[in-house]
């Protein structure tokens, strides 16, 4: 009886040991990642492929179900974060692999209503909806890193939903989802803030009439969810989950394009742009899984001007 029992237990633990998630360290994993990279390159080079077709789509793990912001690092890695905790995920967007994750906070993860992420001169910035900025350095896998908090004192004026660093001009751009000031409610408002400065560092907000932005699109308003800077042109690109919209404006406030989001998206809360023209859209989990979807940028062949 004992021998039989021993065999059963041993077999159970062997099976247990054999069911770890697939790791890129394995030969099979490496081959899969390599194939994915090649597929993306082929798709990018395929000029006959519709520009609104997804190049790739990566299903995010459950812990990233509330993905709220994305940004690209200079080496091509993608940073993403959740909605409630200061946990940052580092992803290889071209091959669909999660490389590591780290948290901000010394003992426990910092908690806030985090809405956007960007990188600025080697530092990483998270913005909360109340306008607090959390500045920190990249951490190792599983590491907790310290952070510095900057108060923009704009929380009563705006509910922030994203952040991007305009490296050419040296300030952060923060779009408003909901504007506090009554006189600005019919405007698309983007605050600009120089990190490390005092309240005097706030530059005049960039405003564009909503009517101009919406144009002929059937949107009743515009509630930006995230912002990024196009590395090729320096233009600001915004995404709006509620309206399923993509907006591109110049740093001086001129509308370049306002188009519907390509593909099907439940709640597109985050976006990023690569220098070689890949648009990455991050969806929160709804009745579907959270996902990253890759498109060509811009997703339309023609460039519609302001209506």
């Amino acid at each position: 009886m004992n021998a039989r029992l021993g065999c059963l237990l041993f077999g159970g633990f062997m099976v247990w040991g054999g069911c770890r998630p697939t790791s890129p360290a394995s030969r099979k994993g490496e081959a899969e990642l390599s194939a994915r990279g090649q597929r993306l390159t082929t798709s990018l080079a395929n000029v006959g492929m519709a520009r609104t077709s997804a190049l790739a789509k990566w299903i995010l793990p459950r812990e990233m179900g509330e993905i709220s912001g994305l940004t690209l690092m200079s080496d091509g890695r993608l940073l993403g974060h959740g909605d409630e905790t200061g946990r940052v995920y580092v992803i290889d967007p071209r091959r669909g692999a999660m490389l590591k994750r780290f948290s901000i906070g010394s003992a426990v993860d910092a908690r806030a209503d985090f809405e956007g992420i960007t990188t600025m001169e080697g530092r990483i910035i998270l913005v909360a909806s109340d306008g607090m900025l959390y500045e920190f350095a990249e951490g190792e896998d599983g590491e907790r890193v310290g952070f510095i908090v900057h108060d923009t004192r704009l929380g009563h004026e705006c509910e922030f939903e994203g952040v991007a660093f305009d490296s050419a001009r040296g300030f952060l751009v923060l779009p408003c989802k909901r504007v506090g000031a009554r006189k600005l409610r019919d405007q698309l408002v983007l605050y600009r803030w120089q990190l490390g400065g005092s309240r005097d560092s706030i530059l005049a907000p960039l405003t564009i009439p909503l009517r101009t932005v919406i144009g002929s699109n059937p949107w009743k308003g515009l509630h930006p969810s995230d912002i990024t800077v196009d590395p090729a042109t320096g233009n600001y690109v915004l995404i709006a989950a509620q309206e399923k919209a993509l907006i591109e404006i110049t740093p001086s406030g001129e509308l370049v394009r306002a188009i519907p989001l390509p593909g099907k998206h439940g709640q597109a809360e985050a976006l990023a742009l690569t220098p070689d023209g890949i648009l990455i859209v991050g969806d929160e989990a709804t009745n579907r899984s959270a996902a990253l979807t890759l498109y060509r940028w811009p997703p339309t062949a023609s460039t519609p001007g302001p209506p």
Binding site: T22, P24, I91
Partner: peptide
């Protein structure tokens, strides 16, 4: 607290039913 690099599920090449109906966070 830590994650070894892991491959994310391919949402385009996997069967649509699996990734939409049974993927992480789905109903």
């Amino acid at each position: 607290t830590s994650v070894s690099p892991q491959i994310l599920q391919d949402g385009l090449n996997a069967p649509a039913f699996v990734q939409e109906a049974l993927g992480p966070g789905s109903l």
